[in-house]
Design a protein around this nucleic acid. Sequence first.
DNA 1: GTACATTTGTTCGTATGTATA
DNA 2: GTATACATACGAACAAATGTA
Lengths: 78, 78
Amino acid sequence: VRVKLDPDGPEPLSQQLAALLRSEIETGKRRPGSRLPSINELAEQYGIATGTARKALNILKDAGLATGSVGHGTFVAR
Amino acid sequence: VRVKLDPDGPEPLSQQLAALLRSEIETGKRRPGSRLPSINELAEQYGIATGTARKALNILKDAGLATGSVGHGTFVAR
DNA sequence: GTACATTTGTTCGTATGTATA
DNA sequence: GTATACATACGAACAAATGTA
């Protein structure tokens, strides 16, 4: 697994992941309406706790970039 | 928001909050078996860190006045 | 129609590191 | 030096909604 998050970096892991996903959204790599990886998927892919992955998604939601749906997933805002 | 905790007071914030909740329990304002505010709610309401709110609840638990349950909440002892 | 797995949301429990008084 | 407080991270249990078999 490529290292994309730095546990020893100055920024919290949750913010790092949120910034990473944000850039993927803003560069069009992730389209409006598309589903983001689930919390468990993010946690596994990046080797972080589910709580940390959830926090990253919350940052995107708070920024209006994503919306969550129980039982469905988290989606890039349209 | 009314100021109920004094950061500059002689007593630690955790003890102040515990004493406040304790008085609410002992005066019957909070009934046995009822749910106390979550740690996050307490932290937000009183402008304190979650760790501090947790410590306050721990004081109540240690005193036998409350019991915690993961995924449910913290409840006034019956 | 019913059971099962997946997923988000909420909650408590624990640990670690930093800063401050 | 010790205790308090804050922030972050990890772990687990529970609930509710969704989709699928």
